[in-house]
Design a binder for these strands. Structure first.
Lengths: 145, 145
DNA sequence: GTTTATGCAAATTCTTTGCAATACT
DNA sequence: AGTATTGCAAAGAATTTGCATAAAC
């Protein structure tokens, strides 16, 4: 997955911040919050980061996960790794948030079926599934103490 | 479901604000945000409302649903309507949020099974399932225009 | 050259904290 | 009487907006 090609494909100008942020998402392989990015890109203005995240959301490069504390995390949309372009896609996979280290990951294997029998007259656009608990790493650390 | 009995049962003092807020939750039969309460209880200080919500959360009278915009909503925990007291309970039922009118409801019939095969070494405490879309009422209004 | 993005300051919104006055048991 | 709760002011955190400068196309 090439950073510059991806940005061009969705019609965003190639700026240093956008290239850096997209690289971070690709390398991270997990969800990142605004403050994660701010920390990693210390010389970048926080407002620019907010705007970068907005433009990525708008172009469907990333999706937003709000954890149970109300903190927003963002993760790459997997469909951009493939050549085909699914335009209206539901993010109906699960997410796991560790309440200790706050690490947030997509669980691609866990997909929720929309309950079409319920909510008969409503239209569903988006699904958010967040599992909160303690990650394996933090359990290990707890057991050591 | 009696307001005063319920408050006593969980060990909270009977104050005007608590009685009013609990009544609103019972009558509303849907999730309410802090600003919903502020609007309905105009003569009550907003800080008191924050603290009321905290105490209700702590006593498991209500649960918190963070909608995809990051706005917190709160809804009654159903187990308090019965006499038996489940102390550690997962809120693994779904929630529906209308992106237009922001109405938020529990969908009690829609329960998510925790995927025990995934996340083998992690511990899951809480599940949040939020479906976002357009509610039947807002669809009707759209069609009229 | 035209359009879009950035950086800074400032405004807004949401939430928490400290403390004296008040209400509950 | 003793303890918990309230209301107000103020602090803090998260996010948005306006605008001049700078960078991308």
């Amino acid at each position: 997955m090439n950073v510059e090609e991806t940005l061009k494909k969705v019609g965003l100008r190639l700026t240093d911040t956008r290239k850096a942020v997209l690289s971070l998402f690709i390398d991270a392989n997990k969800a990142l919050s605004h403050s994660d990015l701010e920390e990693k890109l210390a010389d970048c203005d926080k407002v620019t980061l907010y705007r970068t995240l907005s433009s990525f959301l708008e172009k469907d490069l990333i999706h937003k996960i709000v954890n149970p504390d109300g903190v927003a995390f963002f993760a790459l949309c997997k469909h951009h790794e493939h050549t085909h372009h699914a335009h209206t896609h539901l993010h109906n996979h699960g997410h796991f948030v560790c309440k200790i280290c706050k690490e947030t990951r997509c669980i691609e294997d866990f997909e929720i079926e929309i309950p079409t029998n319920l909510l008969l007259n409503s239209q569903i656009d988006e699904i958010s599934v967040v599992l909160q608990g303690t990650c394996s790493n933090c359990i290990k650390i707890q057991n050591r103490v």
